[in-house]
Simulated scan of single mutants.
Amino acid sequence: MSQVCVMAWVHGRVQGVGFRYSTQHEAQRLNVKGYARNLDDGSVEVLACGEADSVDALVSWLKAGGPRSAQVDKVLTEPHQPSKEMSNFSIRY
């Protein structure tokens, strides 16, 4: 299988609702590496690296709304080449 990395920006009510932690849990379940972090504009940035099918599954989960407490309005994605290899999925502050 091929390894891919995708950067996603999740917009809506996604801060203060456990979104990053739920994303971390889902990413770990899918064996996806990367991070989730809050941005100043109220969105959440997610870097997802792993097997293409697993990364696609995480992006689909994001687009489906993430955790129940969140309200996702839109998810923008683009391919990404990180400067270093990720060893896990972390929460960034």
Rank of each mutant, 00 (worst) to 15 (best):
V32M: 04
S43I: 12
A64G: 11
G42Q: 08
T77A: 09
V6F: 01
V55R: 03
N88E: 15
V55E: 01
N38S: 10
M7F: 12
Q24F: 10
D53E: 04
D56I: 00
L76K: 04
R68D: 01
D40L: 12
C49R: 02
F89M: 02
D56A: 06
W61M: 06
Q81K: 12
A52E: 05
S22W: 09
V44L: 11
D73F: 01
Y93A: 00
S2K: 14
P67W: 06
R37K: 11
Q3N: 12
G18H: 07
A57E: 03
E85C: 03
E78Q: 07
T23V: 14
V75D: 03
H80N: 00
P82M: 02
V10L: 08
G50N: 10
R20A: 09
A36H: 15
S60A: 15
A52Q: 03
G50H: 03
G18A: 07
A52S: 02
Y93R: 03
E78T: 01
L76A: 10
F89Q: 07
V44N: 12
V10Q: 09
A27R: 06
I91E: 12
V32H: 01
F19Y: 14
H25I: 10
G12C: 10
A52P: 01
V72P: 07
N38G: 09
Q81C: 05
S43D: 13
A52W: 00
L62S: 07
V44Y: 15
E51V: 05
H80F: 04
A57V: 00
W9L: 14
P79A: 02
Q71W: 00
G65K: 14
S60H: 13
L30S: 02
E51S: 10
L76I: 11
A48K: 04
G34T: 05
S2R: 10
A70L: 08
T77Q: 07
V44G: 12
Q24G: 07
A36N: 15
Q15R: 14
E51M: 03
Y35V: 11
E26Q: 13
R68M: 01
R29L: 13
Q71E: 00
A8N: 09
T77W: 10
S43A: 13
S87W: 00
R29P: 08
H25S: 15
A36V: 15
H11R: 09
L39H: 03
Y21T: 04
S69T: 06
A8P: 03
T23P: 15
G34N: 04
R92W: 02
H11T: 14
